[in-house]
Amino acid sequence: MTGILIAFAVVAVIGLICAVLLALAAHFLSVPEDENVQQIRDCLPGANCGACGYAGCDEYAKAVAAGEAATNLCIPGADAVAAEVAGIMGTEAMDVVEMIAHVRCNGTCTATDTFADYQGIRSCAAMSMIYGGPNVCKYGCLGCGDCAAVCPNDAICVIDGVARINAKKCIGCGLCAKNCPKGIIEIIPQISTVAVACSNLEKGAVARKKCKNACIGCKKCELGCEQKAITVQNNVAVIDYDKCNGCNKCAENCPTKCIKTLVG
């Protein structure tokens, strides 16, 4: 009995001495941190999504406090956070361009088909390594939800074999776009009214045979656009959101309805 008491006492005393030493060291050797960093860090959302281009909210706060980064880079935080950060830094508040994710594919179960039965790991990354996935369209969404898995805000769900973005929940961080092995998720301004839902770069007839909803590169949208905002590049329509005025004509003209009108 005394043995265990002595052991207990000895370890406790050694631990206590170490603790006191560390506490003293923490007091005397502490490095004064820029108090702006802590303030900025407190008003950031803390999702560590990386949309600002820094490794996380901590790194971004440090960069802002050091004057290396602009105050309006936090996309999830939007205008409210930008105004707060600018307030702490004593600069004028700048507008944040709110962004939203959009999946450039509409190859639902009824519109397209598979050429093989995939039975491996349920992950788009693994799937795309084997002949580019089991879909006949090599460009389209694989529907395993790698994007949904990384989404910090549960804004993505896979419906009918295609990932869908919930516009109300999406914070525009871009994590899904980085993790999509097909690279078909684009980050577009939240105010956009139209978006192209196809990524197939094959010629119209080939693409159409593989998927009923494919862009066939007919250029009807390009000819109808007064702003010259939409062009067909590599057999697929691409919208320049800097020029688009949201007139919605391209979506109305599209024969395969692969240009979508975005709601909300």
């Binding site: 370890v11 050694i14 631990g15 170490c18 603790a19 030493l21 560390l22 060291a25 923490a26 050797l29 502490s30």
Partner: peptide
């Protein structure tokens, strides 16, 4: 225990 404290001390220094 001792080594952990020492490392912490080294880190602070």
């Amino acid at each position: 225990l001792v080594i952990a404290s020492l490392v912490q001390l080294t880190e602070m220094m």
